[in-house]
Design a protein around this nucleic acid. Sequence first.
DNA 1: CTGAAAGCGCTTACAG
DNA 2: CTGAAAGCGCTTACAG
Lengths: 337, 337
Amino acid sequence: MQEGKKKVTLRDIAEKTGLSVNTVSRVLNKKPYYTKEVEEKVNAACKELGYIVDMNASGLRSGSTRTVAILYDDLVNPFYSYTTDIISKRLEERGYNCIMFSNNDRSPYVDYELMRNVMARKPDAILSYLEPQSDLLDFIKNTGIPFVIFGRDGTPYGMTGINADEVAAGRLAGQYLLDCGYKTIAYIGSWHDVKVCLDRQRGLQEALEQNGLHLKEEHVFYIRERELAEVVKKVVEDKADGILCFNDVIAFVMIEALLEHGLRAGEDYGIVGFDNVQQMMRMPRFLTTIDAGCRDLAETGAEVMLDLLTGAEEERPPFAATHKPILVKGNSTKNIR
Amino acid sequence: MQEGKKKVTLRDIAEKTGLSVNTVSRVLNKKPYYTKEVEEKVNAACKELGYIVDMNASGLRSGSTRTVAILYDDLVNPFYSYTTDIISKRLEERGYNCIMFSNNDRSPYVDYELMRNVMARKPDAILSYLEPQSDLLDFIKNTGIPFVIFGRDGTPYGMTGINADEVAAGRLAGQYLLDCGYKTIAYIGSWHDVKVCLDRQRGLQEALEQNGLHLKEEHVFYIRERELAEVVKKVVEDKADGILCFNDVIAFVMIEALLEHGLRAGEDYGIVGFDNVQQMMRMPRFLTTIDAGCRDLAETGAEVMLDLLTGAEEERPPFAATHKPILVKGNSTKNIR
DNA sequence: CTGAAAGCGCTTACAG
DNA sequence: CTGAAAGCGCTTACAG
């Protein structure tokens, strides 16, 4: 079983066993109609010669590459790496491999260049952490390849999405900041036009409005579009004391940046993130954050992908209906009433 | 450029342009010998029909899939995700995609099952975060596919390795713990037979010996092979006050576990990790750690892979010769003299 | 400079 | 239950 010198093909197995290539293929793919005897002969020959199927050839002929494309922005943020780890392992157990595609920091969207690269690999399905560029929706649908948006609402794109209730999550965080007694609330988003970023912002707004307040436009920042220094300057000047960040990593960046101004999270101001990456990394808890249940989200994602890949028609309630976001208290906020 | 209804093949382009499939292929692959006029005709037709190459077919015929296999253990640890992010983006820029393969928690090694799955995809090269099982070395070499071990020394396997000087890193950490004044030193590794884990341990031992001390066998633990509770119990009982962990994530786990016993890192004991994941995540610095320069390590890894893929014969000094590990001080240690 | 033919290693109809 | 033939979409020799 440890050859590898020359590549062993089905033909070699056929010659060795005296069967046809066809029959060998049928046995290996467990198609019906072959005798026990033939099966054993084939398996023995495969083992002896160290046969390994060529998935490229197989995929070319059969139309199924047993490959899933994962479209991502940034593996560093644990939300991505943690969920990708779970999803890719689940898929691998079932014989699918993941091919990674990034937007290489071009934009927060799936663009045509990205889709070209993806389509060249003929994946059986696509799981995207990126929202699709709106002028690409038809193209994506026309491919006929299942496209699942992970961690974001698919509804506005008419696509399957695996996502938490982001508005509720934003509301929960906002209400908590107000309950703590923070007065001037700011939101630090990522991009001004990414839906999940706006949903959390909307939740925050709703919480403020329920308390007779408003989220001021000048206190909403999109950090991927603006200089960090500029954002910090404004936050400091306006003495924003309750800061909600689109995710934990942005929260960390803000904490560091504000520290340079002598401002300490949990002392001089309260800060809340999203994702609970501390738990993923098994870190001591410091940051107050919203946990949407990323492990379950990833498991659901893997199941939905497998349903699509195998053609199973499972009835699943939307993730957001069964999983409510929870607030995880850390030391980056405190009751200042 | 937004078709996609039926797949467009080279034949369609050939028919459209009145050229042969052959010529079209030659133009697209920029092989010599075609006129400007032909080139423009082909490109126009490709754009109009929305042609996208089928890399599976291309790879089957040409023998090069423009694919790199990444063999990993655990994407959650930022050492993996951070470096994978950099490497995969660099490779993608040059037209290679990464396919992910995990050991699915079977063992810390590349085993035959894993290699079978890898070989079925016919990658042009393999980058492995996992050390190969020793009885698989011949198999791997016989594949003829470049195999690079990332983050670990390849020498004992006779393979290319991209790695820091782990012994020096362990020594640095050990000397620092002693300089702080910690008396009872413990090492929390991952697996007892993973070389990089043992190298850091050896560095620690050397530091102790240079100070006339010894690392006691009973104070060396491999956390993937033992109950956490058991490890913690022993550490608490023996009042180990200087703890070196194989990586930051293990350090975090220990900090949490010891906290349950009322012991606080930086107060009741000192703890040091490896990798500086805090910086990768842009987190406020808390843990004292050893930074081997992971960004440079990843960039070097990408360059080495590209050299192997393109057949370039670059002369590169070993990473460890030019990059010395540095100690990053946090609050998890302090001078207790 | 361009084309007709062969073939990469499989799987899919179709015959027997 | 098994086999001979065709073909997936490309690229590679080889002819012209």
